[in-house]
Computed example of a mutant assay.
Amino acid sequence: MTRALRVHAVGSLALVEDLGRPGHAGVGVGRSGAADRAALRQVNRVLANDEGAAEVEVTSGGLDVEVVGAGSWCCVTGAPCPVTVDGRDVGSHTVFFAGPGTRVRLGTPTAGLRSYLGVRGGVVSEEVLGSRSTDVMAGVGPRPLEVGDELPLGTPGDRFPDLDTVPAPDLDGEVVLRAVRGPRDGWVRDVDALVTAAWEVTERSNRVGMRLGGHAFTPARDEQLPSEGAWRGAVQVPPSGEPVLFLVDHPVTGGYPVVAVVVDADVDRAAQLRPGDTVRFRWVAAP
């Protein structure tokens, strides 16, 4: 029987995301994929999907989907949020069954920013360059979800979930991101301000990058830096002096100095920061 999710509400932003499309930076296409890759892997693991199966990334809650056709086993990971099935509270980070015609709704996260609705079998929207991910900067992949969309679901494999709950991340408290010095750390006079100051996540933040406010770096050189390759976790300093931490939909090249690079595992945590949150950095040795 055909299985799908029919979209009734999307909140501020809902996207289909998998683990991205590596290997295309040479032709100007970034990897993209889930902003919090650990959360996507977790929801697929608990549902016995392939770890890179596509699911729905929901920013700030507000998703409302109807299960069409056969019922589905589901789970929500990432930012903990209220989850209901036809108004019955099932909670996040818990495996639950949504029968045919039921409505699954995600509320506003109690902490963090991005939640992941996973379904056994995954979402099987059309692939672009080997991935079902939406890259909001490049405009590659499926467009953001809209009311009335129907997301086809894949056929579950032979394995079955052997857990009914998974640990929820601790997204409260002070956030300290580990970082190594970048290749252009000498292009600002006060690079250690990155680790001595507390930074605020500004409203000018999205899946491309997180603009940090509260302080500004002072340039140490007057010349213009030629464009270089860019990567997830790079901390780039534009002329304003306010650093930008590149997230999953970052450009593949950039012409501003990269003064630090956040440890890859910590970029998942950065993707859960909301505008107004405070973040600090800590130097670590390069591997």
Rank of each mutant, 00 (worst) to 15 (best):
H8I: 01
A9V: 11
V10W: 11
V10C: 14
S12C: 10
L13Q: 09
L13C: 09
L15N: 00
L15Q: 02
L15M: 04
V16P: 03
V16K: 03
E17G: 06
D18G: 04
D18P: 05
L19C: 04
G23Y: 14
H24K: 10
H24W: 15
H24R: 12
H24E: 13
A25V: 14
A25H: 11
V27C: 07
G28V: 06
G28P: 08
V29D: 12
V29G: 10
G30Q: 08
G30T: 04
S32W: 09
S32Y: 13
S32T: 13
G33H: 05
A35N: 12
A35T: 13
R37E: 06
A38D: 08
A38P: 07
A39Y: 00
L40Q: 01
R41Y: 05
Q42G: 04
N44S: 07
R45S: 07
R45I: 02
V46N: 04
A48R: 09
N49K: 03
N49P: 02
A53H: 10
A53T: 13
E55Y: 00
E55K: 00
E55L: 01
V56A: 01
S60G: 09
G61S: 10
G61E: 05
L63D: 01
L63I: 05
L63K: 02
V65C: 01
E66V: 04
V68M: 02
G69K: 01
G71L: 07
S72T: 13
S72P: 06
S72G: 08
W73F: 08
C74R: 00
C75Q: 03
C75V: 04
T77F: 03
A79N: 12
P80W: 09
P80N: 11
P80V: 11
P80I: 10
P80S: 13
P80A: 11
C81Y: 03
V83K: 00
V85L: 10
V85H: 07
D86I: 10
G87W: 15
G87A: 15
V90K: 07
V90Q: 11
V90T: 14
S92I: 05
H93S: 15
H93N: 15
T94Q: 08
V95Q: 09
F96M: 09
F96Q: 05
F96E: 02
F97Y: 15
F97P: 10
F97Q: 11
G99I: 12
G101N: 07
T102G: 07
T102D: 09
R103Y: 00
R105I: 09
R105W: 09
R105Y: 11
T108Q: 15
T108Y: 14
P109I: 09
T110S: 13
T110W: 03
T110R: 05
G112K: 05
L113P: 06
S115L: 03
Y116Q: 02
L117S: 01
L117G: 01
G118Q: 01
V119D: 02
R120P: 06
G121D: 01
G121N: 03
G122W: 05
G122E: 06
V123I: 15
V124E: 04
S125V: 06
E126S: 14
E127W: 06
L129R: 11
S131G: 15
T134V: 12
T134N: 14
D135E: 14
V136T: 15
V136E: 12
M137W: 14
G139N: 13
G139S: 13
G139Y: 12
G141A: 09
G141R: 08
P142Q: 12
P142S: 13
R143T: 12
E146H: 15
V147W: 10
V147D: 12
V147Y: 11
G148D: 08
E150A: 05
E150H: 03
L151C: 06
